[in-house]
Write a protein that binds this DNA or RNA. Structure first.
Lengths: 166, 166
DNA sequence: TATTGTTATACTCTATAACTATA
DNA sequence: TATAGTTATAGAGTATAACAATA
């Protein structure tokens, strides 16, 4: 219990109702927002847009992506992607070129600086994960990741493994 | 793999970059948003504000709460709480009275209808949790909840157990 | 007519700061 | 002077729709 310096009275820390804390999806909501807030702060502090890492990672994984393909892969709106890429292009991290075959399309590619930035962001992301998961040991982290993955495969179709059947 | 009906070509489902899916805090973010979206839709469909459940639960747990105490317990802004309580009062689910001892304060209390609504919302919440956790068996659900609780105690202080020491 | 990227618009959230009435 | 509740305002974020160029 904390003690107020001036009044010397006990400060009862305001607590969440037990039935909310008992709800797993409530905890997921709160922790998701906490994780988002932390990563946004950290990315911004490092001079990046909160979306930069996801976009650069997508481009690194399969090069010569079209603008819309990146948006679809990440689940962003295509109109939202315009501004994100504008900024990344200004920073010299990506290049946009018209597709010669279909001149409506913009092919997006990482620049050398973009790859360097991605490397930096990977370190930052790893650090954020480590920090967020600090209360858990290695086994617990693996277990948690596995369980979240199971949920994500249902609730976030883009996480689902590639289906091989017809 | 899905096949396009018209072109008979393979449709590669847009997929998230592997390194994002490998990040536990990324999964937490995505799942948190998915959980929030689902519960907001369900609450709204049932005629409630997304915040109703949390507020009613807080009032049920410790009656005669002051308006600011509820806001602090749930982590909402006090100015935000005004609108939420306005709506709950219109619906006849809570009552606001001036505190006779300190006339600046509003004491908030559940009405009989408020308790009935809370019972309904508890069922709805339980249903939502069950649905969201459907991919997991009972043991996995318990494990997940425990792990999230550990994280929440660090990242969401309002979830922390009451400390007993000085 | 449909699609890609773009722009414009509108709407929700949230955060902040003023304002009142009490203390 | 500080606090509880309230109101007003501004900013970010997001979702939608319209638009031009191309297919």
């Amino acid at each position: 219990m904390a003690i107020d310096v001036k009044t010397q009275k006990v400060i009862a820390h305001p607590r969440l109702p037990a039935e909310l804390v008992d709800s797993t999806s409530f905890l997921l909501k709160r922790l998701g927002f906490a994780a988002k807030g932390r990563s946004m702060d950290a990315f911004e502090e490092a001079g990046f847009n909160p979306y930069s890492f996801a976009v650069l990672a997508a481009l690194d994984e399969s090069a010569h992506e079209t603008q819309g393909a990146v948006a679809d892969a990440l689940g962003y709106d295509r109109s939202q992607m315009v501004g994100i890429l504008d900024e990344l292009e200004e920073q010299g991290l990506v290049e946009r070129r018209r597709d010669k075959v279909d001149r409506r399309r913009h092919v997006v590619e990482l620049t050398a600086d973009g790859k360097k930035a991605l490397a930096k962001l990977r370190v930052l992301m790893k650090h954020l994960d480590d920090e967020f998961l600090a209360p858990l040991d290695a086994v617990e982290r693996d277990t948690l990741h596995l369980l979240l993955l199971k949920l994500a495969q249902r609730h976030e179709p883009r996480c689902a493994p590639l289906s091989t059947g017809s």
